[in-house]
């Protein structure tokens, strides 16, 4: 995907979350956003997801500026798949219904067609036996995998992951990361905010290190993780890779 950010600023009640982010990328299929908490990673992802409008600056994805009015924002959001850290699924719906809700309501599927297609997807990701369960009956890892299936089901242009494993224990983290790696192998494009540095290094083409609302360092993932240039990134990697 081609991504162009031009001086993006976002403030919340006087706190500057994004402080002039500029970036021009083409050809990256998977991008990892890393950095300390409060550095602006999640805010940037929410801007790209069409959930927050920047206060200043412009965002272009594949040469199309991000829309700003309500109607076009809704159709923009329908064209991408976003997965948050937790509580993605609606608690009153079964896993299957969670997957079919956007298909039927936002993408014009007939109910039966949506059911058949969603079951096929759940089956492909070894979740078919959980189709009739509500989120509280699923483990955290299963919930996240269903949420990812829901995001993939709409055939999105690309996926956005906001710390998809931060609320999970190590075993479940592995099953979710395996699924994301599988999507990567299928050639699906995504941007991921993550604290799993080993994973980011393995699946991302490009890495962006954000700190205090600015891009501190960015580059091809292999270089970024192996030969960091800035003192900030060196210190950050030193800390997170220590244990």
């Amino acid at each position: 995907m081609r991504l162009r950010l031009d001086g993006v600023v976002k403030r919340f009640d006087g706190v500057t979350a994004l402080d002039g982010i500029s970036l021009s990328l083409s050809g990256a299929r998977s991008i990892a956003l890393i950095g300390p908490s409060g550095g602006g990673k999640s805010t940037l992802l929410r801007v790209l997801a069409g959930l927050e409008l920047p206060d200043q600056g412009g965002v272009e994805i594949d040469d199309v500026p991000l829309p700003t009015d309500g109607e076009s924002l809704i159709s923009y959001r329908r064209s991408i798949g976003t997965v948050f850290q937790s509580y993605n699924l609606f608690p009153h719906l079964t896993a299957l219904e969670n997957v079919t809700l956007p298909l039927v309501q936002a993408h014009g599927y007939a109910k039966e067609a949506a059911n058949g297609y969603a079951m096929e997807l759940l089956d492909r990701f070894q979740l078919a036996s959980h189709a009739g369960k509500r989120p509280y009956e699923l483990s955290g890892g299963q919930q996240q995998r269903v949420a990812i299936v829901r995001a993939v089901a709409i055939k999105p242009r690309f996926l956005l992951f906001d710390e998809p494993t931060s609320a999970l224990d190590p075993e479940m983290t592995a099953e979710v990361l395996d699924l994301i790696a599988e999507l990567r192998a299928q050639g699906r494009e995504f941007i991921i905010v993550t604290h799993e540095m080993g994973f980011a290094k393995r699946v991302a083409d490009h890495g962006i290190f954000l700190g205090a609302g600015k891009i501190v360092e960015e580059g091809p993932a292999a270089e970024l993780f192996d030969t960091p240039h800035t003192a900030e990134l060196k210190a950050f990697l030193g800390k997170v890779l220590k244990y």
Partner: peptide, 21 residues
Amino acid sequence: GESQLDSARVIGLTPYQTYRY
């Protein structure tokens, strides 16, 4: 919760659909 509303927005539901479903 707010996170439910965010989830409804990212799957592309309109405000009416969010209330309804």
